[in-house]
Design a binder for these strands. Structure first.
Length: 481
DNA sequence: TGAAATGTTGGGGCG
DNA sequence: ACGCCCCAACATTTC
């Protein structure tokens, strides 16, 4: 292929290692133009939310720095992809564009016609898989249809040939003699005006380096205890790789490789078990992308049609109490406050908090999905959609409608010593373990000694769980087909 | 990747 | 010694 230069159009593949488009471009021995286009309108209505924009800002900064170390640069532009790409093609004389594929419906609606038009204009366009072990159309059941249940889906994935080894980081990326103009990352105004992001800086290191460091920490210190540790929100028992994965700072192939290497080398029973369970979670991510691709309406519509006219209630005040972590249920409030403070919530607590909104407060999962979309640094359309529909019982492989989490029992089971609640709901910190998940049941003396005044320093429960549960079961029973 | 209600079993206190 | 009851522990079923 003869070419005068290649644009590598970066989106959510903000890394250099195991990057098929970069690797392919570098091989051509022609100038490479790494380009990021900020075009939130083209992702409508799923433009990155506030927390995601924070992450994106720092991830782009990290990538720009890394590119410089490799003799290259990151070109930043803003606007619709088509005109921006054409402008850069003509400015540089490049005739080729590479990008990594994404699979969300609104993304495909831009990418597919764009690819056709650019090819029609005699440009070379190639897209690559950089973000999934198995692309959505490669896994089907025996009758050729997409899977809707996780376990057979994952079995089918495991029966596929092993993923290829990750690609190495290109040593040097060929630069043009003259760099085209670029905006500054600051010009994109991705950071918040009011500083709600203070806590984010202590929690995260966006960028490829941060991702690799986190992967190493996980393999060395966390994976062996992952099977049970992942359910203890008070401990560092999860991988915390989700935002890195969402922005493509790390690939699932790299994770697969590192996890297998660690399990093979150390080969303790816990590590092997941990590896298996963790890869299963990576499998859920694959499953989510599979489902979104095959059922593109699911971000706004229940997969199971009998839920379309479900009798959701709505109460703006109650919704706000949930968002702010003021429901009076400590484990729920701790989760919602962790989310607000750090842009992330432990997965066990996501399930509890989500169940509370959907079943105890009987509000539509779409409200929860919207809030998570704006506040999570790992907000991902596929994962968010699957998670919320799963909780609501209207999605694939969904929790049966009668599975309603009891926030007190969940708290006692997974945060037995109250570490997590005390961290995020400090006004309850002095309650004894036995009362920490149900302050309303504590004696007057205990509350007094702990400096807790219900209704004043900490809210009364906004609903009674038992009554709320009965109401949900009734509403759900009427929906059952 | 639940919880609550209901059913069963078995040990121990007691008359 | 025996039956009875209580109840915790565990299992099953139902929502």
């Amino acid at each position: 292929m003869s070419t005068n230069g290649i644009i590598v159009w970066l989106r959510r593949d903000l890394r250099l290692a195991d990057h098929p488009a970069f690797s392919a471009a570098v091989k051509q021995q022609v100038p490479v133009y790494p380009l990021y286009i900020w075009s939130p309108d083209e992702d409508h209505p799923w433009a990155p939310g506030g927390a995601s924009r924070w992450w994106l800002h720092h991830s782009l900064s990290a990538l720009a720095a890394t590119l410089r170390q490799h003799g290259s640069r990151l070109i930043i532009r803003q606007g619709k992809a088509d005109p921006v790409l054409r402008a850069l093609l003509s400015e540089t004389g490049a005739d080729t564009i590479y990008w990594s594929r994404h699979y969300e419906p609104q993304r495909l609606a831009v990418d597919n016609p764009l690819k056709a038009e650019l090819r029609g204009a005699e440009y070379t366009v190639k897209s690559f898989n950089a973000s999934l072990l198995h692309e959505p159309w490669t896994i089907t059941n025996k009758s050729g249809a997409p899977y809707q249940v996780f376990t057979p889906f994952w079995k089918a994935c495991l029966a596929q040939p092993e993923p290829k080894a990750p690609l190495p980081t290109p040593r040097k990326i060929p630069a043009p003699s003259k760099w085209p103009d670029s905006m500054a990352i600051d010009d994109l105004k991705l950071l918040p005006d009011i500083p709600w992001d203070k806590g984010f800086y202590d929690s995260w290191t966006p960028g490829e380096q941060g991702a690799q460091a986190q992967l190493a920490t996980f393999c060395d210190d966390i994976m062996a205890r992952y099977k049970d540790g992942r359910d203890q929100p008070g401990q560092a028992g999860t991988s915390r790789l989700s935002p890195h994965l969402h922005f493509g700072e790390i690939s699932p192939r790299q994770i697969y490789d590192a996890v297998h290497t660690a399990a093979h080398y150390q080969s303790t029973k816990g590590l092997v078990k941990g590896a298996e369970h963790f890869l299963r979670e990576v499998g859920w991510r694959e499953f989510a992308h599979h489902l979104l691709f095959h059922f593109p309406q699911t971000p706004v519509q229940p997969l199971r049609p009998e839920f379309e006219d479900f009798p959701w209630t709505h109460d703006a005040k109650l919704l706000r109490s949930w968002q702010r972590g003021e429901t009076g249920y400590p484990i729920v409030d701790a989760g919602m406050r962790e989310l607000w403070a750090t842009g992330w919530m432990h997965n066990r607590v996501r399930m509890i908090a989500a169940s509370f909104l959907v079943k105890d407060l009987l509000m539509s999962w779409t409200h929860g999905a919207a809030w998570f979309w704006d506040t999570l640094v790992d907000a991902d359309l596929a994962n968010n959609t699957l998670g919320w529909q799963w909780t609501a019982g209207c999605g694939a492989d969904a929790a049966p409608y009668f599975r309603i989490f009891n926030p007190v029992l969940q708290g006692k089971k997974f945060d037995a010593d109250g570490t997590y609640v005390r961290r995020w709901v400090p006004e309850l910190a002095h309650l004894p373990d036995k009362d920490i998940h149900s302050p309303w049941a504590a004696s007057a003396d205990t509350l007094h000694d702990a400096n807790v005044t219900l209704g004043k320093t900490y809210p009364h429960p906004v609903v009674d769980h038992k009554a709320a549960r009965d109401r949900a079961l009734e509403a759900l029973a009427s929906t059952k087909s």
